[in-house]
Simulated scan of single mutants.
Amino acid sequence: MFELYKGSLNVPLLYAKWYEAYKGANLGAFVSFCGIVRAEDMLEGLSFDIYENLLRSWFSTWQERVEKEGVKLCFAHSIGDVGVHESSYLAGVFSKQRKLGLALINDFVEDFKANAPIWKYDLIKGQRIYAKDRSIKLLGAGLLSDKG
Rank of each mutant, 00 (worst) to 15 (best):
F2E: 02
K6M: 14
K6A: 15
G7M: 06
L9A: 01
N10V: 03
V11W: 04
L14C: 01
A16K: 12
A16R: 13
W18I: 02
Y19S: 09
K23S: 11
K23W: 11
G24L: 07
G24F: 07
N26M: 10
L27N: 03
L27R: 02
G28R: 13
G28P: 05
A29V: 09
F30K: 02
F30L: 13
F33Y: 13
C34L: 12
I36H: 04
I36P: 02
R38F: 10
A39M: 10
M42V: 14
M42H: 14
L43C: 05
E44A: 06
G45L: 05
G45D: 05
L46N: 04
S47V: 06
F48R: 02
I50P: 01
Y51L: 12
E52Y: 06
R56F: 08
W58M: 01
W58C: 00
F59H: 06
F59W: 05
T61A: 15
Q63R: 11
Q63A: 12
E64P: 07
R65L: 12
K68S: 15
K68G: 14
E69Y: 08
E69N: 13
E69V: 07
K72V: 10
K72L: 12
L73D: 01
L73N: 00
L73R: 00
C74A: 06
F75V: 06
F75S: 00
A76Q: 03
A76L: 04
H77E: 03
S78I: 04
I79Q: 11
I79A: 10
I79S: 09
G80I: 02
D81L: 11
V84D: 08
S88A: 14
Y89W: 12
A91P: 02
G92H: 02
V93D: 00
V93A: 01
V93P: 01
V93G: 00
F94P: 00
S95R: 01
R98C: 10
L100E: 13
L100V: 10
L100W: 09
L102T: 10
I105Y: 01
I105A: 02
D107A: 14
D107G: 09
D107V: 08
V109F: 05
P117N: 07
K120Y: 03
Y121M: 03
Y121S: 07
D122Q: 15
I124P: 07
K125W: 12
G126M: 11
G126W: 11
Q127E: 15
K132Y: 11
D133R: 13
R134F: 08
R134H: 12
R134G: 01
S135T: 07
L138G: 05
L138D: 10
G142N: 05
G142A: 09
